[in-house]
Amino acid sequence: MSALRKRIATPLRVVAVALAIGSVSSTPAAAPAAAPAHVLIVKSDDLPQYQQPIDAFVAAHPGKITTVNLGGSKEEGRARLLRAAKHESIDAVFALGAQAAWLSREVLPRAPLTFAMVIDWQRYGLGESATGVAVELPVDALLARFKLLLPNLRRLGVIHSTQASSTTLEAARAAAAKLGIELRAEGVTHAEGVAGAYRRMRRDIDALWMVPDPVVVTHDNFRYLAERTRSDGIAFLAFSENFVRAGALLSVAPDYATMGSQAAVLVERTLERRTGRLAVQDPIGSSLVINAETARELGIDVNGSILRLADKVIDEDDERAR
């Protein structure tokens, strides 16, 4: 597997793992809690992505915390959860990952549940019995960040599979219009259609937005789009730092640590309320990563305001000079 393929494979693997988890049984939450609250942190597996929200949660939560790692196994995970609940009184659960959220709901139905790091959380019915922080940035906030980074952005292209929700696309179109951006969308039915879709739109766009669509995002498609956008002078906007390291101009992704801070507030508020359920929140922190080499090729001033917004600037030239 090439280095490029490895870089792309990571986020896709995360998506695949999340989608592989089954449906969810929901139980109403009721939360008698005594201060200081004892929170059980449950993580689906030992993924490094979970550590940032856990650290932020621990820093924000004043009470006792116990952590359980389900180890990626449903049966062993259930046993570990039961052991933890048997020996300790649990006031609330903070679950990371779909499996952790689902099993926590099943094994500890009376403990208020707050989740994070669950891709497409609506699929699991979590909103009916739990609160949490979504893992996807809302489209309006995402496009606003694109516009802040690229103030001259007027025409944004997006290639999506035809199975993608038309509601999502319309929401994106409306959010773009509010920012003075015209969204040009091309639907494809299979991965091989991406190159043709790009060729059809390339003269009409300033930037190409790559969405986490498994039909569109393949190793070959990414390599093709990264090369062609650079030669066509089009900004290539991605959803993960790995793609920026592999040649995309920039990525905007949610900040995992902020999700942990948000979850800590949700747990606290849930315990204060004792009844009812708080709405699932969108993530508010973001991680903006820019490839300075690509920016220079596109004639974007990397010394200007773009740097003031970036969390990380990847500059191969600097690293070579060092």
Binding site: A56, L148, G285, S286, S287, L309
Partner: peptide, 9 residues
């Protein structure tokens, strides 16, 4: 709630 950048806030 701490955020990485002011623009996030």
């Amino acid at each position: 709630i701490p955020v990485p950048k002011e623009i996030d806030a």
